[in-house]
């Protein structure tokens, strides 16, 4: 995949804009999935992804090729999403769970089970609520770790902070998430 990406980047730098369209098609879903969890809003996620691709295009020649294109793109998107979240921090948002976004179950056989959709929606809502309350800095490390499976080192490089900071942010994020989920479960039992 990386070799193909590099070829497309080279084509793009040579003036073939359509090659960049191919790069967009390759990475849009994966990027969108992560960004969606960061901004918790389908429209904002679309905007962030789109803006990230345009920024990436404009800075394409500064892409060194020593990292994967997606990692580089991901860094742009995460920073864009964090700055958006900071701007919108004061706004109260209702999670867009009934949007036109398709939800793909991890295990297709699970989807056919009666009540699966409802359970999944409830579970998502709980996690949405908890994630929403985390600060952007804490939320991003959790998303990078659990959705992208990134290591401390990669996360530190992407976010431009020391590894120790990543470790402590993730530590606080996990404990905070635990507390929020526990509070939510306690309230649900009442």
């Amino acid at each position: 995949m990386s070799a193909d990406d590099n070829r497309l980047i080279a084509d793009c730098l040579a003036g073939d804009t359509k090659a960049f369209g191919e790069l967009v098609r390759r990475h849009q879903d994966r990027l969108y999935n992560t960004v969606f969890r960061l901004v918790e809003n389908a429209e904002d996620a679309l905007d962030v992804v789109q803006e990230s691709f345009i920024n990436a295009y404009q800075s394409l020649d500064s892409f060194k090729g020593d990292a994967q294109f997606f990692t580089w793109l991901y860094r742009i998107a995460v920073n864009t999403a964090i700055s958006l979240k900071r701007k919108k921090r004061v706004l109260l948002r209702i999670p867009d769970l009934q949007g036109q976004i398709s939800i793909e179950p991890i295990d297709p056989s699970e989807a056919s089970r009666p009540g699966y959709a409802l359970e999944q929606a409830e579970e998502e809502q709980k996690l949405h609520r908890a994630l929403e309350r985390l600060s952007p800095e804490h939320r991003v490390v959790l998303v990078m770790k659990e959705l992208e499976g990134q290591k401390y080192e990669d996360m530190a490089e992407t976010l431009g902070v020391p590894i120790g900071t990543i470790r402590s942010r993730l530590h606080r994020a996990r404990l905070e998430l635990r507390e929020l989920l526990e509070r939510d479960e306690t309230e649900a039992r009442r």
Partner: peptide, 9 residues
């Protein structure tokens, strides 16, 4: 759940 882009960007 995995989210996919609703439109081709």
């Amino acid at each position: 759940s995995r989210r996919t882009v609703p439109i081709d960007l």
